[in-house]
């Protein structure tokens, strides 16, 4: 398993952000972690990154419920990014919601790989890392 170049966490909950960072560090998940508090902040930053010739993160952990722009809003904006730039990006929806309708809705987005119910644990992250390495 090789370390990822860049991963991204979009979540307004500081506890979740903290937990994810701890887990990634422990698993040696990525070189760099980008953290955003809402969808708008995230999309703005990612577009900036592209404009400055940067590389998009290979994995995005996206929360559903956020102020300003929630997870769905982010996805709606993200699909507008030219395909060749985002085709290497894997998005995981991460939510505390166990509401089945949220999972079903997530499945309608082609670029969403999986729907993970919080809390995210070590094994799940390890599995993701393995898949990404392959």
């Amino acid at each position: 398993m090789s370390k990822l170049e860049r991963a991204c966490i979009i979540d307004d909950d500081p506890i979740h952000q903290y937990g994810m960072k701890i887990l990634m560090k422990k698993l040696n998940f990525t070189e760099e972690i980008l953290v955003f508090h809402d969808g708008q902040e995230a999309i703005d930053a990612l577009l900036d990154l592209l404009n400055t010739g940067g590389q998009l993160p290979s994995v995005i952990f996206l929360d559903l419920n956020m102020p300003i722009k929630d997870g769905w809003g982010f996805l709606d904006d993200f699909v507008k990014i030219p395909h060749h730039n985002r085709e290497q990006v894997t998005i995981y929806m991460v939510s505390s919601s166990i509401n089945p309708s949220d999972r079903q809705r997530a499945e309608t987005y082609e670029m969403v790989s999986n729907y993970i119910v919080k809390p995210v644990d070590e094994d799940q992250l390890r599995e993701i890392l393995r898949e990404e390495s392959v």
Partner: peptide, 8 residues
């Protein structure tokens, strides 16, 4: 969301 945090 709180219980998930507590658990984590």
């Amino acid at each position: 969301s709180h219980t998930a945090n507590l658990s984590m």
